[in-house]
Design a protein around this nucleic acid. Structure first.
Lengths: 172, 172
DNA sequence: GTCGTAATGACAGTTACTGACATCACTGTA
DNA sequence: TACAGTGATGTCAGTAACTGTCATTACGAC
């Protein structure tokens, strides 16, 4: 992040990153699949936040209800864990490079697919499973984009709620 | 496409493609920004199909109505222009490689951003502009995925309608 | 103290991509 | 017809992202 904010993502080589971190280029690639991956959380972060809650939702919760609950808890975690300023700094870098943006939406698409699978696991039929998953990610993406925008002060939770209400209002 | 279906995307080098097409590697990169780009339509295809109709929608059409109309015409064009079997062959290749999948969702995200801008251009306020755009792309993505699935015979138009109905039913 | 295991370093190699310059085909004009 | 200009292509050298392989080192169990 330091190097990226100083000279920019493309002007920073992974040899630079490795040297700055005190290790070898080869070792870098043993920890991260590729250069972009340094900017994305490792492990099961996304999974724990988005798909686990959906998979664990009780049977009497509707498909849209399951993703709504997941979004609410995810919002709380994200406000605390990386923090808003960290998210803003990271977002500035990601937004500055097409490859990084692509990776970001790719990750979210992967999460959407996992949510859809979780929905199917709770007995939701197919068009609904994928649609509610995509809805969830769409609501999150729009809310997150506003959350990290300059001058925005409302909480991520509020913005997600507003997204969900906006969707309901749009299709009404 | 020939080479990709024969040996697979990753096993095909750009030098292979260039040689097979009777030109130089350098010339390839003058026509395509990178290796993945060969599998994506050139020019203003997406734009003409998705954002132009939204931008041109009359003022008395609701935000969701504008994207619904765009989806309907896009469906008709796609059934004819590349054809279903071509779409299936291409989709098999794209689905076989994470980088290609990433590029695909990246392209769609770009289209969503352009649709949102078009909505704003017609006076739609901000949460609604982005949300209806994302909704449009979500409905399309799910419908398209089913359209190219093995054994599916319904038309893309039908599947898109089913997507839109599914969204409405989910949030009702 | 030694052995096994996992992480790291060292190094060579492939491939995607880029910049710079020369060459060639083509088109309009005197 | 000769010629100048323009755009597409070939050639070549170079960078940087990745990968395979093997040696080395750190570290915990016994």
């Amino acid at each position: 992040m330091e190097l990226f904010t100083e000279r920019g993502y493309e002007q920073t080589t992974v040899a630079d990153i490795a040297a700055h971190a005190g290790l070898t280029e080869r070792t870098f690639f043993r920890h991260f699949a590729d250069k972009r991956e340094v900017l994305f959380p490792v492990g099961t972060w996304f999974h724990d936040l988005f798909v686990e809650p959906v998979a664990a939702a009780p049977d009497d919760i509707s498909p849209i209800g399951a993703v709504t609950r997941a979004l609410a808890t995810a919002a709380k975690t994200m406000e605390a864990e990386p923090g808003r300023e960290n998210a803003r700094a990271r977002h500035r870098i990601v937004a500055s490079n097409p490859d990084l943006l692509e990776r970001e939406v790719g990750k979210l698409a992967g999460v959407a697919a996992a949510i859809a699978a979780a929905q199917r696991g709770r007995g939701v039929e197919e068009p609904a499973a994928s649609l509610t998953a995509e809805l969830c990610i769409a609501a999150f993406r729009v809310a997150f984009e506003r959350w990290v925008a300059d001058g925005e002060t409302r909480s991520l939770g509020e913005l997600i709620e507003e997204s969900l209400e906006g969707i309901a209002a749009a299709v009404a």
